[in-house]
Design a protein around this nucleic acid. Structure first.
Lengths: 341, 341
DNA sequence: ATGAAAGCGCTAACAC
DNA sequence: GTGTTAGCGCTTTCAT
């Protein structure tokens, strides 16, 4: 049988295509494409007629087809370890604002602090031909690392500073840990317990502990550590306070890995009638609004989170536009001395 | 290889293609495709050889091409009005967990409470041939509505209940407003000020106010309203308290549109030495952990947020699998009487 | 169990 | 300024 007589048809969607718009408008499909993507290259009158036809048919461009043809998706892959932490939400907000204005769409992935999950997400995102990839942290599985190294698009590693694959925006967590502990020592505290949550996975909290410990060792003081098995939260901070009071009755201060834990402990102390900082001092990390609204105001370190997202986005956009970029950018941190220490 | 003398070449990416894997493995490209997508339909030995070749070449499937050919992306569009509100984060978490397990990728859009922005996001997401779309709320611009009506994929409208385009999961906000105000009346409060933020846009807060007002009118009481111009936050709650104290000196209770505002006011009262509920009672909405940790514990209404996300995802997956679904699902709410009222 | 051919809907490349 | 042609990398359809 002759194939020409019965052309093989695939199940197409009901949506009109560029070609159908072109036919209806009496022009070629490329002209419709230009009218939509580079209107200045089309005769104003033709353009108006085409846009009217687009409107009339309810044409919505198939971005998948366009991406395949142009080998570009305008997707930005963003990989974070958790959505339960306000810090990453603020970073995502910073990224989203800047990228959406530039016409990029964010593809969000959540690793739950699992490096294998990260590798899997990276595979998927590379498969979508993303324009760039943003990930939290410098530590990756070897599979993930080799995937990223072979990739020929911009990569931004955020949150911490160090040996990066490509671009890097972050802060020095060890220095932040040192800074806070110096502060606590200057206030006269000597029995300081460090409390973190899942620190094997949240290794940046581990880096802050390392800085903390360094300072205490220089002062010839012990650096007891409590590493909780669940993810940080207000509730967990309350539990942690109980635990520290039970196991370290002589402790005069607690250095928490983040503000959620610290604020949870602070509010719990309030319920228990324990004086902060009279009976025990409390410090956190992040500078979330919450800690600044409680009484006593939480002593903490502010990291420029939304700014970090913005900066990451700006650097990536510059790189995508072929402009010069700063490979490594330290966004710093600020000690916020409160009344809880 | 023996095509025309100078075949026109496009700039292809450096990545190996399915065809190249096929050539290297000595099979046809469709066999490689099957080995990856439907392994059970390929001879085990052939499959092993192909997978080894895939590994050796570092092949990563081009999902854009696959999606164009199969007319399916496994994308789920998720549109929320804000990322600054913990409520939407929890809903997104619920959606993400369920959908990622089922092999879907979420495409996140943020409208900033702007219906035109929503319409624009919907256009983009339809262009990506998403498998389904989730959006917060039942109100849309007419442009958005007609786009969605023409679309032939599942749509889930979340958060509130009512006349939906397709699927609907949510709760009755007017009833929630009534519930809280009944509670406040039963506690003896009579001069109750309602405080919301950007209620023209956050119209669900407006629905709760309507319920609140209804109950007060039945009791022949006034229902003064303070509608703040900025987005809800702890800081704004503090400001709101000042403002209510100044403009409604005889108020004995404040019914806040959400927990962020309420908790901000509560913490501010603490700073000012104003007794809660002795001098003024405070109530919120959402049941966020924060409100449950402060002293006095916040009186609020808990909405099943993460559950709402999960349920939305489950219903959509069922619909995508051609299974029967519940078109409208009321997830309800629970009054959490605290010590702040 | 495997393959050949066609085509998804669009844009890049090259005319005129 | 507009059109022609080829092709992006994959999956569907049909054949063996």
């Amino acid at each position: 049988m002759s194939k020409s007589s019965t052309p093989r048809r695939r199940r197409g969607s009901a949506r009109p295509t560029l070609t159908q718009v072109a036919e209806a408008a009496g022009v070629s499909s490329i002209t419709v494409s230009r009218a939509l993507n580079t209107p200045e290259r089309v005769n104003p009158e033709t353009r108006r007629h085409i846009l009217a036809t687009v409107e009339r048919l309810g044409y919505v461009p198939n971005l998948v087809a366009g991406s395949l043809a142009s080998a570009s998706t305008r997707f930005i892959a963003v990989i974070v370890p958790s959505l339960a932490n306000a810090v990453f939400i603020e970073v995502i907000q910073g990224l989203q604002e800047t990228f959406e204005d530039a016409g990029y769409q964010i593809l969000l992935g959540n690793t739950d602090y699992d490096l294998d999950r990260e590798a899997q997400l990276v595979r998927t995102f590379l498969g979508w031909s993303c324009s760039a990839l943003v990930t939290a942290g410098l530590r990756h599985s070897s599979a993930c690392r080799s995937l990223l190294q072979q990739w020929d698009h911009p990569i931004m590693e955020m949150m911490e500073l160090g040996e990066a694959l490509d671009l890097n925006v972050g802060l020095d967590h060890t220095a932040a840990g040192r800074c806070m502990t110096h502060h606590l020592l200057s206030r006269g505290y000597r029995q300081i317990v460090y409390v973190g949550a899942r620190m094997a996975e949240d290794y940046r909290a581990g880096m802050r502990y390392a800085g903390h410990r360094e300072v205490l060792e220089d002062a010839e003081l012990a650096a007891p550590l409590l590493d909780l098995a669940r993810l940080g939260s207000l509730e967990l901070g309350a539990l942690a306070l109980d635990q520290v009071l039970a196991t370290h009755p002589r402790a005069d201060a607690i250095h928490f890995a983040n503000d959620d834990l610290a604020t949870g402990a602070l509010l719990h102390a309030q319920r228990l009638g324990i004086g902060v900082p009279k009976d025990i001092a409390i410090a956190g990390f992040n500078g979330l609004p919450l800690g600044q609204q409680v009484t006593p105001r939480l002593t903490t370190i502010r990291s420029p989170r939304q700014r970090m997202g913005q900066l990451a986005a700006e650097q990536l956009l510059a790189r995508l536009a072929g402009e010069p970029v700063t490979l490594r950018q330290d966004v710093g941190f600020t000690l916020l001395p409160g009344d809880s220490s």
